[in-house]
Write a protein that binds this DNA or RNA. Structure first.
Length: 437
RNA sequence: CGGGGCGUAGCACAGCCUGGUAGUGCGCUCGCUUUGGGAGCGAGAGGUCGCAAGUUCGAAUCUUGCCGCCCCGACCA
């Protein structure tokens, strides 16, 4: 992609409304534009990142055996009256009346909707276990949206829902998602820790939050120092017992959010306890028959008798992760994207656009990178060097390749790693080898 | 929902107290000079001063109401 043909409205100065670093950088890097409080448009650069994260989440859900569906954003109130949540949910739920005076709502979550789908079609234990997920926009009318995309009112979320015959099956489904989450956050380049969580209004007895570590995170977490050295599970398939072992291994270590942490009675020795800040990006629940019972979601068991299915739900804040990743990975100059979610792989800078030799060298290098399958943002604009470097640092592509009058005669390319800052002068072939293998 | 703050050009702001023809920096356009870390000079374009009512000969400025946005707290993917 040539920058001259791209839409990248970057800002040199900090917008005043943005306090936290991810919000500031997203606005400055031209990733998003606020539409109203807590509601944003995604501009090309931001949208690319959002889509990359979404795709990784999707791939890991698919690998875990979950099936993708797509449920509507607008739901009928009657469904929520069946579970009793229409009255319980309060003002955070955006309520809408259609032209026929029917009560509708913009979904803040989809337990009712998915349980309705399940009960309409699934009648036998032979169809279990089942895990349905979707990646869809949600709306919660927060009293006070803040932190940009991290705590918006409209947000993109992956939510999965598992259905099992009994508690044992549900627990395996839960463990399966637990492990899928470890793999997902690892692929996103994040350090995530599972915290035993309060189950809150949804209820249930098995629940974990996944918190991404970032110095600027919203809440404080305490955990045993060895927790982070655990290896992320790699195998494609695990048996129920293996899943349980992995979950046990991860949850044996102490980890708690500040509201659950009791310094006086903490089981971890002071020297082994680490305190850092974090951002909640995922939440998994087992909630048994909370929805299946009022909805009459039951299946015939092997004995021919109907039994209510046991459910769980598993959320990942996809849009929030964009901010979370930036919080966890940036410096004074801008964003530092992990390779897996970077909007482009490489930024190519033509230091003297309009100069015949520079243009020719850049065009050639751009062609080779692209032919090798790299996604390249090629700054072919007529801007000044400093401006180009600063902009490239700001948008945080993992690699920068610079071609300017100084090195062009000898066919040299300067390659810089955004994260380490390390620069090296290479001839075009060596640079190509480094960047695209 | 309690408390606080702010709405003036695309962005950041000054002007308001003490009413009198709307300004600065960045960005944008054109020209010249520059050219390896957000350039210099010159010339331009761009604003019903959030909206409405009121006071006044005259309102960005004073008064009232409304709307929007931000921050702190309680609450949450």
């Amino acid at each position: 992609m040539r920058l001259s043909r791209f839409f990248l409205p970057t800002l040199k100065e900090d917008p005043k409304e943005a306090q936290i670093v991810s919000h500031r950088l997203m606005l400055r890097a031209g990733m998003i534009q606020q539409s109203s409080a807590g509601i944003y448009s995604w501009l090309p650069l931001g949208y690319r990142v959002l889509k990359k994260i979404e795709q990784i989440v999707r791939e890991e859900q698919n690998k875990a055996g979950a099936l993708e569906i797509l449920m509507p954003t607008i739901q009928p109130a009657d469904l929520w009256r069946e579970s009793g949540r229409y009255d319980d949910y309060g003002k955070e739920m955006l309520r809408i009346t259609d032209r026929h005076e029917r009560d509708m709502l913009y979904g803040p979550t989809n337990e009712e909707q998915v349980t309705d789908i399940f009960r309409s079609h699934v009648k036998s234990y032979k169809d279990l276990p089942l895990n349905l997920y979707h990646i869809q926009w949600k709306f919660r009318d927060e009293v006070r949206p803040r932190f940009g995309i991290m705590r918006g009112r409209e947000f993109l979320m992956k939510d999965a829902y598992s259905f099992d015959l009994d508690y044992e099956g549900a627990k395996t489904a839960y463990n399966n998602m637990f492990v899928a989450y470890l793999k997902t956050f690892d692929r996103l380049g994040l350090k995530a820790i599972p915290l035993r969580a309060d189950t809150g209004p949804i209820g249930g007895d098995l629940s974990h939050e996944f918190v991404v570590l970032a110095d600027t995170g919203e809440s404080e977490v305490f955990y045993h120092k060895d927790l982070l050295s655990l290896a992320t599970p790699e195998k494609a398939d695990y048996s129920s017992d293996e899943l349980q072992e992995i979950v046990d291994m991860w949850t044996d270590y102490y980890a708690a959010a500040d509201d659950m942490h009791d310094a006086e009675n903490c089981p971890v020795a002071e020297g082994d306890l680490v305190s850092r800040r974090g951002i909640e990006v995922g939440h998994i629940f087992h909630f048994s028959d909370k929805y299946s019972k009022p909805f009459g979601a039951s299946v015939a068991g092997p004995d021919g008798k109907d039994s209510i299915v046991s459910m769980g739900s598993y959320g990942i804040g996809v849009s929030r992760l964009v901010g979370g990743i930036i919080e966890a990975s940036h410096d004074d100059d801008g964003i530092i994207w992990p390779d897996s979610v970077a909007p482009f792989d490489i930024g190519l800078i033509n230091l003297k656009s309009g100069d015949e030799a520079c243009d020719a060298a850049c065009d050639e290098f751009y062609g080779k990178l692209t032919a090798a399958g790299a996604d390249v943002l090629y700054d072919d604009t007529s801007g000044r060097a400093g401006e180009k470097f600063a902009k490239m640092d700001l948008i945080g592509l993992p690699w920068q390749a610079t071609i300017g009058p100084r090195g062009v005669k000898s066919g040299m390319v300067e390659v810089k790693n955004r994260r380490s800052g390390e620069k090296q002068e290479l001839d075009m072939d060596a640079a190509l080898k480094l960047l695209v293998g």
